[in-house]
């Protein structure tokens, strides 16, 4: 009951902000040309839908996001287990991982542009770079934190190395992996927008940049709203998946 009341307050809060925005724009408190207004955003959205621009922008961004995140999760997961498991691999790769994980990778954008030009590949590389490290670093940590006693137990039952990997290492990695993927999703969204801003002006990022160039703030806010909604949706989806996968935890 109480939860429902708080939900109502949240809905009212959002409605109030949108209402205030609309009123300010209508009464000229703010310049509508610069701030747009909720109604204006709805009109812009309708225009973008009718002309098919929105669908193609979302499609382009979704493909980039999915391809790059998929690559990042696969690389991060597999390399993470290997680097976490074999100390030698850790010693070889960790200096680079530490450096790249800590630095703002967007700084590499000009280099990627030079190497790959304004291409889909360049965009993928940018997004993968930003989103691979959270997965990689978390999976490495998880692999190192596998309970040595559980491994000894498995050995006492004559488990082979592959059986130990399957029945002990991988299951205990799941929480770390999911955390890594959650951070990677955030990173990938940033990567998608940035690479669309600077490498191709396509997708939702491109739509925002082009609308900004012609001062069409309504369309800018359509793009921003879509990004906000998608982010919330993905985070929620992942939280549900996390709860499903780690039901055994308290």
């Amino acid at each position: 009951m109480r939860r429902r009341r708080y939900l109502l307050v949240s809905v009212a809060s959002v409605a109030a902000v949108l209402g205030a925005w609309q009123v300010c724009a209508d009464t000229g408190v703010v310049q509508q040309r610069l701030t747009s207004s909720p109604w204006d955003v709805v009109q812009s959205a309708r225009y973008l839908i009718d002309t098919g621009q929105l669908a193609s922008a979302i499609g382009a961004s979704a493909v980039l996001f999915a391809v790059a995140l998929g690559i990042a999760v696969a690389i991060g997961g597999i390399a993470g287990v290997a680097i976490g498991w074999w100390r030698l691999l850790g010693a070889i790769f960790e200096p680079f991982i530490a450096m790249l994980y800590a630095m703002p990778l967007i700084a590499l954008l000009p280099v990627i542009l030079v190497w790959f030009g304004i291409t889909f590949q360049a965009q993928v590389v940018m997004v993968v770079l930003i989103s691979v490290f959270p997965v990689l670093v978390n999976v490495i940590t998880g692999t190192r934190n596998v309970d040595a006693e559980l491994i000894r137990l498995a050995r006492s039952f004559r488990a082979s190395d592959t059986e130990i990997m399957r029945t002990v290492v991988l299951p205990s990695l799941i929480p770390y992996f999911v955390t890594g993927v959650r951070l990677a999703i955030g990173g990938a969204l940033v990567g998608v927008v940035v690479s669309e801003y600077f490498m191709g002006e396509n997708g939702i990022g491109g739509l925002i940049v082009k609308a900004g160039d012609i001062l069409d703030t309504g369309q800018v806010f359509v793009g921003i709203t879509i990004l906000a909604v998608v982010s919330v949706l993905l985070t929620t989806l992942l939280r549900v998946a996390e709860r499903r996968l780690t039901r055994w935890r308290a």
Binding site: D147, E149, L150, L153, S156, P171, W248, R249
Partner: peptide, 11 residues
């Protein structure tokens, strides 16, 4: 072998 602490697989 029965170890001192149960070492059950929590999942």
């Amino acid at each position: 072998v029965v170890f001192q602490s149960p070492h059950l697989l929590p999942w």
